[in-house]
Computed example of a mutant assay.
Amino acid sequence: MTRKATVRALLDTYGETYAEQAGIRLADTPSPLYRLLVLATLLSARISADVAVAAARELSRAGFRTPRAMRDATWQQRVDALGRGHYRRYDERTATMLGEGADLLLTRWRGDLRRLRAEADGSVAALRDRLTAFPGIGPTGADIFLREVQGVWPETAPYVDRRVSAEARELGLPATAAELARLVPRGDLPRLAAALVRVRGHESALPAA
């Protein structure tokens, strides 16, 4: 099968981003960007992606859609929301990190990740470095955030991380961001990157490139 057929199968079967799965309509506005940051924090732990997404949904249902709401919630309220999403293994530590991260965002960037973006001045490396300043956001969390935000922050595109590149290579697809971006319509690279993460362990169900 052709690369085009492999990419189509990936997008059709696994091409839902984590943000979409969590009910986040990603846009370059403060609340959805913050919710993506929270989701990246949850996905950074050694826990299943489905549980992390469920926990992100529960935090949103509880009203913690802005850094101020997250910071002003009690620690127990954050723990309870995480528990409803079955994020129990790391709930207490994560509840603390979410409060601290919200406070950092409010204090340093006035609650708006677009200010962090402006501070990075178009440098993906600078942006990645600033993201890792948030408690719980290490290199993996920063990669998740950048993979998904590239749809609304064009200066970060095309962005793929080592995990995406390795899976692309396994499937016979090009491994660089620029080459992968040429295989999909503009704006679909976040979906392709998400699909390449999700397909791991299910490669045999796809046509070979």
Rank of each mutant, 00 (worst) to 15 (best):
M1S: 14
M1D: 13
R3S: 12
R3T: 13
A5M: 13
R8S: 11
R8N: 09
R8D: 14
L10D: 09
L10I: 05
L11Q: 03
L11I: 10
D12A: 14
T13C: 13
Y14R: 04
E16M: 10
E20K: 11
Q21S: 15
A22V: 02
A22Y: 01
G23T: 02
G23A: 09
I24L: 06
L26S: 11
L26G: 06
A27G: 10
A27H: 13
P30A: 01
S31T: 15
L36K: 01
L36P: 11
L39E: 03
L39K: 01
L42Y: 02
L43G: 06
L43Y: 01
R46D: 09
I47W: 07
V53S: 03
A56C: 12
R57S: 01
E58G: 00
S60W: 07
A62P: 09
F64G: 01
P67R: 01
R68Q: 14
W75K: 15
W75T: 15
Q77Y: 02
R78M: 02
D80R: 12
D80L: 07
D80V: 05
L82C: 07
L82R: 07
G85E: 02
H86A: 11
Y87T: 06
R89D: 09
R89T: 10
Y90T: 10
Y90S: 13
D91E: 14
T94W: 02
A95F: 04
T96P: 00
T96Y: 06
M97R: 15
A102C: 09
L106A: 06
T107N: 08
R110F: 07
G111V: 06
G111R: 01
G111Q: 03
G111P: 07
L116K: 08
R117K: 14
R117Q: 15
E119F: 00
E119Y: 05
A120E: 11
D121Y: 06
G122H: 12
V124D: 11
V124A: 14
A126V: 00
L127W: 15
D129P: 00
D129W: 11
R130V: 05
L131E: 13
T132F: 06
T132I: 12
F134R: 06
I137T: 05
I137L: 12
I137C: 04
P139F: 08
P139W: 04
G141K: 00
G141D: 03
A142Y: 09
A142R: 02
F145Q: 03
L146H: 03
L146W: 01
L146T: 04
R147V: 01
V149E: 00
Q150M: 10
Q150S: 04
G151T: 14
W153Q: 08
W153I: 13
W153S: 07
P154N: 05
E155H: 15
A157F: 00
D161M: 12
V164L: 09
V164S: 04
A168N: 11
A168K: 01
R169I: 11
R169V: 15
E170W: 11
L171F: 12
L171R: 11
L171S: 12
L173I: 05
P174V: 08
P174T: 04
A177L: 02
A177H: 01
A178E: 15
E179I: 04
L180Y: 04
L180S: 05
R182C: 04
L183V: 11
P190T: 08
P190S: 09
P190Q: 05
L192C: 08
A193N: 07
A195V: 10
L196V: 02
A205K: 12
L206K: 07
A208I: 11
A208D: 13
A209Q: 09
